[in-house]
């Protein structure tokens, strides 16, 4: 046996051995991170089996698309609904054709979704609009995960769930614990301060406000306020000018820009007697831009909490130069 042959065999053994070892390490590493297959319970109580690490994700929920970015799985995204627009890079990728727009969240173009050959489909639910696409896509053998966060902890578990599904648990939980800290900071800062009566408006004609169980109600409470319509029998409903006058809010937060300016809101019949109007505390907040709660709340919900905290307790909080940062002033 020539030295040449021996060395060739040796090299072969070393190369393959190290490859095998590397492969083993890789698998064991991945096993440590996520043991596919596993099953999860999605937000509408369906038991979904995740067979392997997804390679192609279609997201039909704006906030879910954002979460996919947050957990570091953006490169897996191949299709989104028409309202997914955050972060900016996502919009650019849709424009350049790198990500396909599959239409509305509620009535997606199923042909397009299927043609993308997704390994995971993230969809909004439960809703009478979505029951059919969920059922249809599941019947066709696609892995469909329904997301329906209604509050901050729901957003956190959505982030953790998508982290787990995409094999990025670690990044997801890091992100979530950072968010938790920011929430706790706001909560502890308002502790002991008087609750500020707040009116939330989602629509102007007729007036629509929110009740307990809505994300806005939760944000107001956490930011040291008290929703004047916390006695609403449902999450959202039509209220009257008169009820708002009677409940006399100290601050108004409008989640729409249907009126030209806050001046028009202040000049509504009889509203001149309301404290919030007298003290010029009528503010706009955008569901989409400020809360990231478009359709369903997403990772930016805590940014929204901080923004609302500034409106509710301006004596405690102040917006920093970087809009996401909240400076704590003296609490007394």
């Amino acid at each position: 046996m020539s030295i040449k042959k021996i060395s060739l065999i040796a090299i072969t053994i070393i190369v393959f051995g190290s490859l095998a070892g590397f492969a083993y390490l890789q698998t064991s590493n991945q096993t440590k991170r996520e043991a596919y297959p596993f099953s999860i319970i999605d937000d509408i109580g369906r038991n979904v089996t995740i067979r392997e690490r997804p390679t192609r994700i279609v997201s039909l929920v704006p906030s879910a698309s954002e979460i996919v970015y947050t957990v570091g799985a953006a490169n897996l995204l191949v299709g989104v609904d028409q309202f997914s627009a955050y972060p900016d890079e996502l919009t650019q990728r849709v424009k350049s054709g790198n990500i396909t727009n599959v239409g509305s969240s509620f009535n997606p173009d199923l042909d397009k979704v299927i043609s993308l050959n997704p390994s995971i489909i993230l969809i909004n639910g439960p809703s009478q609009f979505n029951a059919k696409p969920i059922q249809r896509l599941s019947e066709l053998g696609y892995t469909v995960v329904s997301l329906n966060a209604q509050n901050i902890s729901g957003v956190f578990s959505n982030i953790e769930m998508i982290g787990k599904i995409t094999g990025n648990s670690e990044q997801a939980s890091k992100f979530v614990s950072n968010l938790r800290e920011r929430v706790a900071k706001v909560e502890s800062a308002v502790k002991g301060s008087p609750k500020v009566r707040a009116y939330i408006e989602n629509w102007n004609n007729p007036l629509f406000s929110v009740g307990p169980g809505s994300i806005q109600d939760e944000l107001i409470n956490k930011a040291g306020g008290k929703n004047i319509f916390s006695d609403l029998p449902q999450r959202s409903g039509q209220v009257s000018y008169e009820a708002v006058i009677t409940k006399n809010p100290e601050v108004m937060v409008l989640f729409h820009r249907l009126d030209n300016s806050t001046e028009i809101v202040k000049s509504r019949p009889g509203w001149n007697v309301i404290d919030a109007v007298k003290k010029d505390r009528v503010h706009y907040i955008s569901n989409e831009k400020d809360l990231g709660a478009y359709g369903a709340p997403g990772p930016r919900i805590v940014d929204g909490l901080e923004k609302i905290a500034v409106l509710i307790h301006p004596e405690i909080f102040k917006s920093g130069r970087n809009s996401n940062i909240v400076l704590l002033l003296k609490a007394n």
Binding site: N202, W203, N205, P206, Q238, Y241
Partner: peptide
């Protein structure tokens, strides 16, 4: 229209109401 933002309000306007009346 955007189903997340405008749908409910439009539908309720179509139903009709005297609630937002001004002089």
């Amino acid at each position: 229209v955007d189903p997340y933002n405008n749908l409910q309000g439009i539908i309720f306007w179509l139903i009709g109401s005297l609630a937002s009346m001004s002089w």
